[in-house]
Design a protein around this nucleic acid. Sequence first.
DNA 1: TTGTGGTTTCAGATAGTTCTGAAAGAACGA
DNA 2: TCGTTCTTTCAGAACTATCTGAAACCACAA
Lengths: 174, 174
Amino acid sequence: MPTNPPSEWEAARDDFVAQWGALGSHWGINRTMAQIHALLMTAPEPMYTDEIMEKLQISRGNANTNLRELVGWGLIQIIHRKGERKEFFQAEKDVWKMVVTIARERKRREIMPALEVLKSCAERTKTESSAPGREFYHQMKELQEFVEFGIKVSDTISSMKHASALQWAMKLLG
Amino acid sequence: MPTNPPSEWEAARDDFVAQWGALGSHWGINRTMAQIHALLMTAPEPMYTDEIMEKLQISRGNANTNLRELVGWGLIQIIHRKGERKEFFQAEKDVWKMVVTIARERKRREIMPALEVLKSCAERTKTESSAPGREFYHQMKELQEFVEFGIKVSDTISSMKHASALQWAMKLLG
DNA sequence: TTGTGGTTTCAGATAGTTCTGAAAGAACGA
DNA sequence: TCGTTCTTTCAGAACTATCTGAAACCACAA
């Protein structure tokens, strides 16, 4: 089976997939998971496991695990085609929805647990009387308030439609 | 040399250091680097290498490397005390300044290179004529514009004083 | 049932990252 | 110059995250 020479857009796509993978790994997201996501984001049609394995040269186990993980994040969807037994996968293509999804998941998985620790650190040292103890308490409190505030801002923006968020941001910049 | 029982604030601090380390590693920052940062953030006085090694139970090489890295990020400062030969380290304690610093560095190190790839992907496929090719071009363009916009917003907010940013955000929430 | 096409699991292998510790280097005072 | 104190470097060790591949599993049709 001869492979056609890749068109320019397919070559560019390979670069995009590679870069998205690298970016992901700088941000604590498994490289392969990010690559699969990039691949599906730019796929003209939904893809199935074997195509993804082939394209990224990865094993079935790896593909399966990361596809499930992406489904867990809500970044891709499983598609069942009538008459077809196998599962197809398709990524959300809307950038705004994608960003909102990622923000929601990271908040749930990482920010909230961290916030709990900050709260507990503050709570436990509320009554410290030494100077360093009081200093520590204030710092935890400040950090806690900052994070809570950030969460509120993020939630507010996330709940906007893309257009409203854009309009709001334009006002900030203008 | 007998060690005094740790005060409550010191115990809480250990939790904070551990959690900050874990959080860092979820976000692509080396665990030790994040721990050193947490330690210095909550240090009543500037600390020197041996104290840090002792407190975190890490080797000299590890401590040195990560301290340099933190200096490179602009998150900690080297302090020279008169009469003392060794270097002391001290972290920025202002949360707002800290966040702005992190945002600036991540932009420089990770976002800008990624943006370049997006631009190049768009540029290279500007004239594609196939439907998937055009679709890909539009997607890269959209992503590029989104990122550029995000950078502008982030720069604008970063250049504000903490108080102004707060005021602005209150308006958003209100 | 049994066969087929597809998915999931997971023990062990691999690769990538981080850490250690010892040696070399640098700065300084005596 | 030499000795002391502190910092830097880096080869190899240790650790962690990720990946492979094969076996088990599952759903369905014949």
